[in-house]
Amino acid sequence: MEKNIIKVEKVKKYFSEILVLNDVSLKIQRSNVVVICGPSGCGKSTLLRCINGLEGLNSGDIIINEKSILDKKNLRAIRLDLGMVFQQFNLFPHKTVLENIILSPIINLGVNKDEAIVNGRKLLERVGILQKENQFPSSLSGGQQQRVAIARGLAMQPKIMMFDEPTSALDPEMIKEVLDVMIELAHDGMTMIVVTHEMGFAKEVADKIVMMDEGKIIEESIPNEFFGSPKKDRTKHFLSKILK
């Protein structure tokens, strides 16, 4: 089995004339947690969106679990391997919490409804909001909604979970409850790609931290090195801004 579950190879991505990903290459091993950080507009979210095919590539390739994203036939299989958690949660407002979680396994994996419900409840318990299963997302706090979104992703039994600034839209007191779920997930051995500015989270669970700037990966190192002795001035500057 190939040890790198994700291989991003020389990816270029333009939004009209603007180059947002400039020759980005990145390898991610199974069960690793990779944190991507960098100033806004550096291309980190775009990289995640390219990995699950929400954005197309202008050149280069991305290989996920030995399947190339360039082959349109692979797209659905790749998306089933990848769970995605968004900054704005994006729960389905017309479905209850439990329905949000069981809909895709039933439709897209062919799981029978009873089984999906049992599994869905387990996941809700795991993220600590089983008591809200019959409520609609709008009646939940941001932190609760984001935990439901994580449970929704996990219900598809993905091989990789991706998080696009999962705590950026949350009130400060709710950030911890979401990070705790993510930390537990990391300890369980889930492969994770996390775009975040939560450096405490990065220190605790990241196997690798990737620093991006102006569409390029400028530094890639383990947390101790990244925080202890960053190689690039841009990284030092960035850290000094966000760590304060």
């Binding site: 929400l54 659905r76 998306r79 990848l82 704005q88 389905f92 895709s104 897209n108």
Partner: peptide, 12 residues
């Protein structure tokens, strides 16, 4: 975001 969340879950 609703489209994207749905696509990410594997819906056509």
């Amino acid at each position: 975001g609703q489209w994207e969340a749905s696509f990410s879950l594997g819906f056509s």
